[in-house]
Nucleic acid binder design. Structure first.
Length: 830
RNA sequence: GGGCUUGUGGUCUAGGGGUUAUGACGUCGCCUUGACAUGGCGAAGAUCGAGAGUUCAAUUCUCUCCGAGCCCA
């Protein structure tokens, strides 16, 4: 038997790691291969890679998604495009602040701001390094030499410049609006940081009177907020109160600086069976109150200040803490005979996750990006974007239909991009920095070439340098941006906005936004909003929205469920002979999962093959190995078999003396390859991978290879040419999915790596000058060939004859008459 | 609580108004055949989540319910 030029007997994880390390050892070589060269003259394809947020462990589902983004990057390179696959890390945000607070057991606000920021930076840098390693281990072909960090001055200055630009255009405004606020910690907090706690509270039934003297009982747990009551509502179907609707009702407590009565109206959100069925709506007792205020177009009252005290509208209770005011108001009502009943009851109240302090919804002056006025225009832009899968576009459209308020972008936190603005002493003018500078107004003075604008009209009043003397003592903004304000610039940043105008010209709209479906309403929406506001263009050509990685039973992976699977353990499974085992809590009991070898190539193949884009996918290492490791083995062995026979010097010129079976398999191969090429163009990983897999594990080895074995052993050059040409081109088409696997085999047998191929393999049928019709005719025989082979194998089996022994009495069907010779020798027909 | 998405053999999956409903893994049976037992060949296994409606015809369309997921309250 001839010796194979592919020496390894089988694919292994150690081999994979060896190849992978060699692959990125030489930085120059790596960059030449995967770096972005905007001047190559090729079509530019910029991928707006989601910058991952480092938090210690990287979710295996996210790693799987990134590996598919890499498949897209590599397949676009294979199609001849100049791909920019950037590597960014999102490092702004409250999460890292919490980690530092937890590690040091100290609240952020007890630190010096500068000291706290440097602690955050140190901590996030450790997490970032782990993430880079995993990214490389799963084979991402990012241009790591151009890594960007969203907390770097280079990135933050872009966020700030965009803020200034939108501010000047009037698309960013200041307003007094409801925010969730923790009065003890003294900060606004996000919805995500609110939890519910059960506490005993007094439900007070208060007698109210309409202006014409009708008594109405209203239940509330927040009597101190009567001063902020804007409306009283009942359910539209509630017969009991029909006659009250439209009347005015008098507030039962004294107030100052506002009307002393409110109107009674209907609202569908009222629960008729709660208390008396009449609801007073205050700004702002809870989220429902906020919603009703918004629905009814009411102007909110500011009842509670930043220290958690009542404001002047509370009349006699002005300045009281909320809890004190509640007691005092109940006392007052009791003294005046306006209490009908008081019952103690358990109630869920919103508290802050950190301090367990009851939170208030209060009015604060915050910065907003205007968005309600631009929805129609955005939708026009979205029509121009191709979504993968198309149905996931609905997530975005539905969300947009629900947008009713502007986007609040200011936060009272620290490890974020600062809002780049200073205020004049009289607060009527603002100072904004020039584009290209990163500023920290809480500690810095404005750069000398900053501009002075009117705070209301946005009119440019001149340079800071000239007007400096007239501004009085200026103060820098202390608030920072919501992190989505940074993240939603990622496509602009990687496409060269502000920094590389000539690239931006060619690269925008950004070719592709790949992301998970859970952040359609945030990352995708805000990014598209920015491109509409700033450039009046769609942000992308393609948006690719993947599903989420779930546990083996289809549930979300979480620490509390104990059903998480660590990404590194799957990628390292099988390395150094170490097998993997995972204890995962199932719905009923804990289950032990075991696998011998997986690695990055098998993991990628699994994700590419097992789920359509957009569907949630179940992650079970046992299944990944069982279903897909064998495919790698099979492809490896086909290649190894091919490598036993000398490769013709010229694989690119089709020999004239191909046998009919060679032409047949080439027709099959070509049909598969054109599906793959089309799929790569359409970013359809699933279809491409399925086509490659079924060809390489099915018709090629089982039927064609079995037929031509004897010709190969007899040094038939046409058969050798055919197998080598197919294996070589197959590896090129397969390399986006399993790059190291394809790289190693192709480099060993053909001295040229499949990952360096930068145009899709040419059509051999065209080369053969076989027209398409003839190719189709040949492929029509595939079923007959498979059926004939099967029936012959079965006949031998039934007769108890070994497969390599002769058999008689088998008739070759008419349509396969051209194959008579090869089929006769294949099955030793007599 | 609301909106959206989703539910196909034991498991994962393709498809989609009329088909013997696709493929893979697993299971079972057979086979050491000149690359591959980490293999080859073959077989069994599904009233397409439940109920109702539209239709000559529904797994596919509509509605309700149940389960799962995402986001927002």
């Amino acid at each position: 038997m001839p010796a194979p030029t592919l020496p390894e007997k089988r694919w292994s994880i150690d081999l994979e790691k060896k190849i992978q390390e060699a692959h990125s050892e030489n930085e120059q070589e790596y960059t030449a291969r995967y770096g972005f060269n905007p001047n190559s003259g090729k079509e530019i394809f910029v991928i707006d890679t989601p910058p991952p947020y480092p938090s210690g462990t990287w979710h295996i589902g996210a790693v799987a998604q990134y590996s598919m983004i890499d498949v897209i990057a590599r397949s676009q390179r294979l199609l001849g495009k100049e791909v920019y696959f950037p590597w960014g890390v999102d490092r702004n945000g409250i999460n890292i602040e919490f980690v530092v607070e937890q590690n040091t057991k100290r609240k952020m606000k007890t630190y010096d701001r500068e000291e706290f920021l440097s602690l955050c930076k140190e901590t996030i840098e450790e997490f970032t390094q782990a993430m880079r390693n995993t990214a490389k281990r799963v084979g991402l072909s990012c241009d790591f030499s151009k890594e960007y960090l969203t907390d770097s001055p280079e990135y933050r200055q872009v966020t700030q410049a965009i803020f200034v630009e939108l501010f000047k255009k009037g698309e960013i405004i200041e307003d007094l609006r409801p925010n969730i606020y923790d009065p003890v910690e003294g900060t606004t907090i996000a919805e995500a940081e609110v939890e519910r706690q059960s506490r005993k509270t007094k439900l007070v039934d208060i007698k109210w009177y309409t202006e014409d003297g009708v008594e109405v009982i209203i239940s509330t747990t927040r009597p101190e907020l009567i001063c902020a009551c804007g409306i009283v509502v009942v359910h539209p179907d509630d017969e009991r109160y029909r006659n009250l609707v439209g009347k005015k009702i008098i507030l039962p407590v004294p107030v100052s600086g506002r009307e002393t009565s409110v109107e009674i109206k209907t609202h569908a959100s009222v629960k008729s069976d709660f208390g008396s069925g009449v609801l007073m709506v205050c700004s702002f007792g809870d989220q429902n109150d906020v919603a009703i205020f918004r629905d009814m177009g009411l102007t909110p009252f500011r009842a509670i200040d930043l220290d958690g005290c009542m404001t002047s509208i509370a009349g006699p209770w002005n300045g009281n803490k909320v809890i004190e005011a509640r007691k005092a108001v109940i006392d007052y009502l009791e003294e005046n005979g306006k209490i009908h009943d008081i019952v103690e009851r358990e109630q869920e109240i919103p508290v802050s996750e950190r301090g367990k302090n009851p939170v208030e919804t209060i009015l604060l002056k915050e910065w907003y990006v205007r968005q309600t006025h631009i929805q129609d225009r955005m939708k026009e832009h979205i029509e121009e974007i191709e979504f993968h899968p198309a149905r996931n576009k609905q997530f975005l459209i539905d969300w947009m239909d629900n947008i009713s308020i502007d986007w609040p972008i200011s936060r009272r936190r620290w490890y974020h991009t600062e809002i780049p603005i200073w205020y004049s002493q009289d607060e009527t003018k603002v100072i904004v920095p020039p584009s290209g500078t990163y500023v920290q107004p809480w500690k810095d003075s404005p750069p000398i070439d900053s501009r002075v604008l009117d705070r209301e009209t946005r009119e440019d009043m001149g340079s800071y340098q000239e007007l400096k003397q007239n501004l009085g003592e200026i103060s820098g903004e202390e608030k920072v941006f919501d992190t989505w304000m940074d993240s939603s610039n990622s496509n602009l940043f990687v496409s060269g906005y502000l920094n590389h105008p000539e690239l931006f010209e060619k690269a925008f709209p950004t070719a592709l936004r790949p992301q998970g479906k859970e952040i359609v309403r945030t990352w995708l929406y805000y990014t598209l909003l920015k491109s509409t506001l700033l450039l009046d263009k769609p942000g992308f050509n393609h948006v690719w929205i993947d599903g989420l990685g779930m546990d083996p039973w289809g549930r979300k992976m979480s620490k509390s469920l104990g059903n998480g699977i660590d990404a590194d353990s799957v990628l390292e499974c099988g390395a150094g002979g170490k097998t993997g085992s995972w204890k995962v809590k199932g719905p009923d009991k804990s289950v032990s999962l075991r696998a011998n070898k997986i690695g990055s190539e098998c993991f990628r193949l699994w994700k590419a093959c097992d789920a359509q884009v957009g569907d949630d996918f179940h992650i079970n290492p046992e299944e990944i190995e069982k279903k897909y490791y064998g495919v790698l083995t099979k492809v490896f062995n086909v290649a190894r078999f091919a490598s036993m026979f000398p490769c013709p010097d010229d694989l690119d010129t089709t020999p004239a003396d191909l046998a009919i079976e060679d032409k047949w398999i080439i027709a099959e191969f070509q049909s598969m390859m054109s599906i793959v090429e089309k799929s790569w163009h359409e970013l359809d990983i699933y279809t491409a991978t399925q086509a490659l897999k079924s060809f390489a594990t099915g018709v090629l080895p089982s039927h064609w290879l079995e037929m031509v074995k004897s010709r190969l052993y007899d040094d038939d050059e046409a058969a050798a040419w055919t197998i080598h040409r197919i294996v070589r081109d197959f590896l090129s088409a397969f390399s986006p999915i399993c790059p190291f696997f394809s790289h190693h085999i192709s480099l060993t047998i053909y001295s040229k790596s499949a990952v360096d191929v930068d145009s899709f393999p040419v059509n051999i049928v065209d080369e053969l000058a076989v027209d398409m019709q003839q190719g189709d005719d040949l492929r029509k025989l595939t079923t007959s060939i498979q059926e004939f082979n099967s029936s012959t194998w079965n006949a031998k089996k039934d007769a108890g004859i070994s497969l390599n022994k002769p058999i008689s009495g088998i008739m070759i069907p008419d349509e396969l008459s051209e194959f008579t010779k090869i089929l006769t020798s294949m099955h030793s027909l007599e």
